[in-house]
Design a protein around this nucleic acid. Sequence first.
DNA 1: CCTAAAACGGACTATTATTGTCGTATTTAA
DNA 2: TTAAATACGACAATAATAGTCCGTTTTAGG
Lengths: 135, 135
Amino acid sequence: MFQLSKRVEYGLIALSHMAKGQLGQIYTAKEVSERYNLPYDLLAKVMQKLAKRGFISSYQGVRGGYTLVKHPVTLTIASVVDAIEDRPSFAIMQCESHPADSCTIHKQCTIKDPLLKLQGSINKVMEEMTIMELV
Amino acid sequence: MFQLSKRVEYGLIALSHMAKGQLGQIYTAKEVSERYNLPYDLLAKVMQKLAKRGFISSYQGVRGGYTLVKHPVTLTIASVVDAIEDRPSFAIMQCESHPADSCTIHKQCTIKDPLLKLQGSINKVMEEMTIMELV
DNA sequence: CCTAAAACGGACTATTATTGTCGTATTTAA
DNA sequence: TTAAATACGACAATAATAGTCCGTTTTAGG
Ligand code: SF4
Ligand code: SF4
């Protein structure tokens, strides 16, 4: 519980790697996966998603790869997590990340409202750290 | 990812319920499970663990049950989570909650150190909210 | 003493989420 | 034309969580 998924970790590693180099430099998934010993297929998917979400742009074909689009300072951990995960991602309560009625006790639950405050604090923490601090 | 476990939620619900009443009042697991529609067996285990960790004290036998021992203001979310989960509980990185070498890329990983700062912020948030705010 | 209600605790199953893999299609520089 | 790359979809393997079952122990009260 409360652990960053590997997908997110791989995404953060890839982004921080790209943030090290010059703006506009092209990196391939293979290159990153070998450099950090990450499973290629999984990393590839993560980078594809980051591309789809506009964090990096992709170039197909032989000398293809990815380049960082946004400036590292503007890339918060929160935004990266949100991009990679499909659901409202660091929701600490099931009723926030899933349909509310998927929690069988939603109606009787007395803690969901007060916990929203905790959620807010966590959101803030995740929004305050950026990829810049990872390089 | 990043979701409180049901065990923790049930524990928080139980504690907040007990915090509502008078100090020293006895509550049974059955009573709580019926009041909030929680699966009895699972809740029972959670309360047993809370008893073992000294958050509540238990009385066996016919008119037995649990009473709240610590004052709600001193019961932080962090301490409750730690009591219920076995591992360092809201560790955001596998290498912190599991043996470090269980992460195959631990050695090459460049994000683990910077992420400790994030971890610290999250710890703080979890330590600042108490059961008192749930009643 | 007997009974019933409660905590205690171990083992197990079911369900779900995550992680990793595979196969194939598409694009494109050289 | 080829090879290197992204792009997708489907799948399998693994692990974590949730929930269940079954028994033991304790003890107040009749
Ligand atoms: S309703 Fe209460 S228990 Fe169900 S998910 Fe939301 S917070 Fe957790
Ligand atoms: S080493 Fe890096 S990747 Fe492995 S768990 Fe720790 S942080 Fe995550």
